[in-house]
Each structure stands twice: as C-alpha cells, then as structure tokens.
C-alpha cells in the first residue's frame, strides 16, 4: 500500500488571481466536479466554460476558441473517446490542448490511440482541484512538468 502521505496544510491562502485570458472548456457531466474545477480554475484567473454532454462539447470544441479542453470519458451522448476521435479526424490542427480528466483507468487496448490524440490523461480522484490547477499552470507557463505533480506528494 502506498503510504498515507502527509498533506501539508497550507490553509486559506489560495490567492484569487487576475484574469489571464486563457480559455478552458471543461466537458464533465458530474455537476459537483465541474463546479469544483470551474471554481478553482476561475480563482486562478482562467476563463472557464463548462458543458455536460459529448455532443455539446464537440460542437463547442470545433469552434476552436479554447486553449485547453478538459474532457471526461464517460459522458452522456457521444463518449469522450468519440469526441477525441472526431476532433482528431476532422480538426487535426486544433489549437486547444486536450487533457483527459477521468476516473476511468486507461486500458491497454485504447492506450496508444489516446496517447496519440490527447495531450494529457489524469485520474480525477487522485488530484484535488488545486493540484489540477497547478498542473495546468505549469502547462501554460511552459515550466518543466514536475513528475511529482502527476504523482501528488
């Protein structure tokens, strides 16, 4: 068992930042999760749009107004996987970077395909919204992605 790691209690100092103009599309059907993500990302200055279904998500993504798309795999209508495939097929030059945010573990059969099409894959339950924001901050600033972030310490 991976040991219970001590979380340092930072306490009440998650600063509210000025809008940074970076647009994020969050496609997520679980209302509480999208609320938490949107809240944390907005406080960090991001411009967040949340959508629930795969079909709406695809339509919005095709307009290519976003910098980052956070895509859940198990969503109503088209699945996240289908959305990803569709975007990859018809809009290979999409500006947005697609990060899969899911609680589904990647299975070996679809792994290669997802690795080719997406820019990241994160298991939601393993990250708190704040940790997710840190990963996205690093992505945006071009800092070297710290591996310990993906394996939260």
């Amino acid at each position: 068992m991976v040991g219970l790691k001590t979380i340092r209690f930072t306490g009440g100092n998650m600063d509210i930042k000025e809008p940074n103009g970076i647009r994020i599309l969050c496609i997520e059907d679980e209302h509480f999760i999208s609320e938490l993500y949107a809240r944390a990302l907005r406080r960090a200055g991001y411009d967040v749009t949340t959508l629930v279904s795969g079909d709406d998500g695809l339509r919005a993504a095709q307009k290519d107004n976003y910098d980052i798309i956070m895509l859940d795999l198990m969503i109503p209508g088209m699945t996240g996987f289908e959305v990803l495939r569709e975007l990859n097929k018809h809009q290979p030059k999409l500006k947005a970077k697609i990060i899969i945010t899911t609680n589904l573990d990647q299975d070996e059969t679809s792994k290669d395909e997802i690795e080719k099409m997406a820019d990241g894959y994160l298991i939601k339950a393993e990250f708190t919204p704040r940790q997710l924001v840190t990963i996205i901050d690093d992505l945006v600033s071009g800092k070297n992605i710290n591996e310990s972030l993906i394996e939260p310490a």
């Binding site: 980052i68 990060i99 990963i135 070297n144 993906i150 394996e151 939260p152």
Partner: peptide
Amino acid sequence: AHGWIKNHTL
C-alpha cells in the same frame, strides 16, 4: 502513477 502529460504542450 495517476496519469501523464505531454511536456511543454502549451
């Protein structure tokens, strides 16, 4: 352990 990110993508 819980995902991957392509470095420098943005």
